[in-house]
């Protein structure tokens, strides 16, 4: 005998749906219109939906706070042998609508896109505020074309190394938060023009003169008015001379009695856990912005350069 779920009182149906994983609720909603209505009525609310677009693979994941996203549905045409591009538009739209209605989702969602699919006709997902680009390498012009379709995006993650010259009208410069996993020379180039709040870049190739200029411009309010933090994790071959970075800058010793010694950056990523950053008097200096006396701490060592503006 089957267990007649629809014959249970509503409160029991609701508890059963809450006991299921997201992918199971999704599968249940495909059984019938009535079952979909039951799943909607169960009011499972989700903080973040991720749409993932990769060549031959489509995924929709759901991310709870402080946990990794959980796949709600995954279609892998390499394994199923389906010819996805032929049914792409209809399938994508149907999946998108099903998930959106199932979880009554009204919050901004996130988009994860692979560089191997970025030049394909990716459907425009509405209400996206975060994009995560991954893949081997990325041409800036392709990235710019893609990003121009998403003017509301505030947080951008770029995993591959970016190749190309940054212009003053670049879409990336409109972002509030940018994270570069493989920065190389692009990170320093972006830092020099950055208008946003946070910039994290890993594997960067930057010079002492570039960092010195960056600090100087901030102190003189010539740029970086919105900046909250800038992090350059250095490539192995990049060795900085601290004295040259702070050369001729008016710095103060870091005072742990005035500043907190740990700072937590919220990366808002689907798969990166933010660890608290330690500040201490041995590797840190403070600088003060002339105009408003705002203070920032600089941490420099052989691995990284961190610049944190205190509120």
């Amino acid at each position: 005998m089957s267990i007649p779920l629809l014959h249970f009182p509503y409160v029991v149906q609701e508890a059963i749906f809450k006991a299921m994983d997201y992918c199971e609720v999704f599968a249940m909603s495909l059984c019938s219109k009535r079952m979909k209505h039951c799943a909607i009525r169960a009011k499972r609310r989700v903080p973040k939906i991720w749409y993932c677009w990769e060549k031959d693979i489509r995924r929709i994941s759901i991310q709870e706070k402080e946990s990794l996203p959980e796949d709600c549905i995954r279609i892998d045409c390499k394994n199923t042998g389906q010819n996805l591009p032929q049914i792409d538009a209809a399938l994508t739209k149907a999946l998108y609508e099903q998930v959106k209605s199932l979880y009554q989702h009204k919050e901004p969602c996130a988009l994860e896109v692979h560089m191997n699919a970025i030049t394909e006709e990716v459907p425009i997902f509405k209400n996206v505020n975060m994009i995560d680009v991954f893949g081997e390498s990325s041409q800036l012009k392709d990235l710019e074309t893609f990003l121009s379709q998403y003017p509301k995006v505030d947080t951008l993650w770029i995993r591959p190394c970016v190749h190309g010259e940054l212009s003053s009208s670049s879409e990336i410069l409109k972002m509030g938060n940018v994270h570069l996993s493989n920065s190389r020379l692009f990170g320093p180039s972006l830092l020099s023009e950055f208008n946003g709040r946070t910039l994290d870049s890993f594997n960067s190739l930057i010079t002492e003169a570039e960092l010195n200029l960056f600090i100087r411009k901030w102190m003189k309010s010539e740029s970086y008015h919105n900046l909250e933090s800038a992090v350059m994790s250095l490539a192995r071959e990049c060795v900085l001379n601290t004295n040259l970075v702070i050369d001729q800058l008016e710095t103060e010793a870091f005072d742990h009695t005035k500043q907190q010694q740990w700072y937590q950056i919220d990366h808002q990523s689907r798969n990166i856990v933010s660890l608290p950053i330690p500040f201490n008097e041995h590797e840190c200096y403070d600088v003060v912005r002339e105009l408003d006396k705002k203070r920032a701490s600089i941490l420099i060592n052989i691995y990284e350069f961190r610049f944190l503006v205190w509120n």
């Binding site: 089957s2 267990i3 007649p4 779920l5 629809l6 599968a27 059984c31 219109k33 009535r34």
Partner: peptide, 13 residues
């Protein structure tokens, strides 16, 4: 979904 329909006795549309 087909298996779920049997397990939970869910009628089709």
């Amino acid at each position: 979904p087909e298996e779920l329909r049997i397990i939970y006795g869910i009628p089709t549309d």
